[in-house]
Amino acid sequence: MNKLIQNEMMKLIAKKRLIVIAIIIGILVMLFTYAQYKQVQTQREKLGTSDWRTILQQQIVDTTNRLSSSRISDEWKKQLQISLQQQQYYLDHDINPAEPGAPTFMRIFLESSIDLFIPLMVMVIASDLVSSEHSLGSIKLLLTRPVKRWKVLLSKYITLCLAVSLVIAIAGILSYAISGVVFGYKGWGAPILTGFNVTDTGLNTSEVKLLSLWKFLLMDFGLVWFVSIVVGTLSFMLSVLIRSTAAGMGVMLAALISGAILSNMVSSWESAKYFFMVNLRLTDYMKGTAPPIEGMNLSFSMMVLFVWWAAALLVSFIVFTKKDVY
C-alpha cells in the first residue's frame, strides 16, 4: 500500500498541481491582505480614530439605521438583528471582535474561503485523480497489474486526503506569513467569543464562551479540513464516474456555486438543507451567524456532510471495482 501511495504522490508532484495551488493561494492572500488594509485605513480616516470601541459603536449605529429602514426583507432584518446583538455583546464585554494581527486575518480568510475557494482548490486535485488515468489511457496498465482494484483506488484516496491536508496547511501558512507583514504576527491569544445560538426568538447568548484565538483557529481549521475532505471525496466520485476531467470539474463547480447562491435564497425551501452545498459554511456556526435555513446547526450540517461523504466513497469504490474499462 505504501508503495502505491508513493506512486500517486510521485504523479501528483510531477503534475505540479500543488505548486500551482500554492501560487493561487499566495496571490489571493495578497489581494485579501491589501483589501483588508485599505478597509482599516478608510475606517480610520472616516472616524478619525483607530480605537476599536469607537468603530464597533459606529457599526452598531449603522446596523440600527439599516434596521429602521422599511424596505428590507424580514429575513435580512433578522440577520441584521442577530449581528447587532452580537456586536452589542462584544461591546458590553469589552472584547474586540477583530483584534488586528495575522491570526485574525487567518480566521477571516478561512471563514470566507470555506465554501468556495478552498473547495475549488481541493477540486482541482481531486477531479482528475481517476479520470486523468482514463484520458491518458494509463488506466489499462494500472488495472492489469497484480494489485486489486480497490487497493489502487484506496491509494488514490489516501493520496487525496494527504494532498487536501497539505493544501489547507499551505493556506494557513501563507495567510499567516503574508498578512503578518502588514498586520503583525501577534494576536494568537486574543479573546474571541463562540457559542452564540441562533434561535427563533433571536440570539441566545447563554452558552457563549470566551476562547483564545488560537483555540478558535484550531477548530476553524478542523472544520475547513472536514469540509475539504467531503468536497474532495465528492469530486473524487465524479472523477470515477465521469471519464472527462473537464465534465467532472464542471459538475462540481456548478454544485459549489449553486450552493453559494442557494444559501442566500432558500430560507423558505426547507428540504434544501439536505444538499451538501448549503452546508459548507461550518465556520459560521462558530461565529454565530444565522444559518441559511432555519433549524440548521453545526451538528446537523456535519451529519449531512458525513452522509454525502459516505455515499460518495461507497459509490466510488463500487463503481471502480466493478466497471468495464474500455
Binding site: M10, K11, A14, K15, L136, G137, S138, K140, L141, T144
Partner: peptide, 12 residues
C-alpha cells in the same frame, strides 16, 4: 500486456 497504444505517463 500492451492494450492498443503503450500509454504511459508522459509527464514522468
Amino acid at each position: 500486456c500492451i492494450v492498443e497504444n503503450p500509454e504511459l505517463y508522459p509527464y514522468l
